[in-house]
């Protein structure tokens, strides 16, 4: 690892990272504020039953404290954050700086290329962890605001936070793989954006259509199923898969990134 590069990455992405941390905080606080009115809205369940399937209402009552505050981990805005936040650093440092010529100056120093990629991976993982911890804290904060914290100890959503950290790591690996191949920041952004769109579409399909639930296995987002985890309905192999598969996806993506990088004729 290169502490110098890690400091540089933090300097570059500190504002973005902090701003992204506000997203779960906002969602958590909003749910906390409106939770007391949920009881009146239960009557609407039948109307929104179909859309509530997205969040796993069939496994876990989404109007219960657990179900409601689990939304901090699977609100569509948060799902998008899992994909965007970890892509910022690799797309800027690799595709972006290479196209501008700034990467040459870095690679001409004694900094080893493998160390560069490892530092980037570590930074990305820390970013994901920060985001997951913010989501964990925000869910608890929301429960506190709603007066439900007594029934929801701080650690209630810890498994979800760990899975979320794995999911962001997986997206980060995919972004790095695309970035190391792309000729420019715009090209990397376009390719990655398209991939995220497809992966989110697969996840939505898997959530909404029982017959297509297997599609969820093809996307990191498919391993984030708060309702199944919190309701205890998930079998133990499934629970293990939720925790293990996203990090494995991340490792495979980073391995492929290193291989592609080595094969490149030009830095």
């Amino acid at each position: 690892m290169s502490p110098v590069l890690l400091r540089f990455l933090w300097r570059r992405h500190r504002t973005g990272s902090l701003l992204f941390g506000l997203a779960p905080l906002m969602v958590g606080l909003i749910i906390g504020l409106i939770y007391p009115t949920y009881a009146q809205e239960r009557a609407l369940v039948e109307v929104f039953k179909h859309s509530l399937r997205f969040f796993g209402h069939e496994q876990l009552d989404m109007f219960s404290p657990r179900g409601s505050f689990s939304l901090v981990f699977q609100d569509p805005l948060i799902l998008l954050c899992y994909a965007i936040l970890p892509a910022l650093a690799p797309i800027a440092l690799y595709a972006g700086d290479r196209a501008r010529g700034a990467l040459d100056l870095v690679l001409a120093t004694p900094l080893d290329r493998a160390v560069l990629l490892r530092s980037l991976a570590l930074f990305q993982f820390l970013q994901g962890l920060w985001f997951a911890l913010m989501a964990l804290a925000s869910a608890w904060l929301g429960a506190l605001v709603a007066g439900e914290a007594g029934g929801l100890p701080f650690g209630t959503f810890l498994p979800l936070a760990l899975v979320a950290a794995g999911v962001t790591a997986a997206f980060g690996g995919l972004a790095a793989l695309i970035s190391v191949r792309a000729p420019s920041r715009a090209a990397a952004g376009t390719a990655y954006g398209s991939l995220v769109f497809v992966l989110m579409a697969l996840d939505t399909t898997a959530r909404m259509w029982k017959g297509g639930s297997f599609l969820g296995w093809l996307t990191p987002l498919g391993y984030l199923r708060p309702a199944l985890l919190l309701s205890g309905e998930a079998s133990w192999p499934l629970r293990v898969a939720y925790f293990v598969v996203p990090p494995i996806m991340a490792l495979l993506s980073w391995w492929a990134t290193v291989v592609v990088h080595r094969r490149r004729a030009s830095a």
Partner: peptide, 16 residues
Amino acid sequence: RAEIGYLPGDLALQPF
């Protein structure tokens, strides 16, 4: 590489 000092032709510094 520690023994080399390099100035690229199209120098791009980090604006931030």
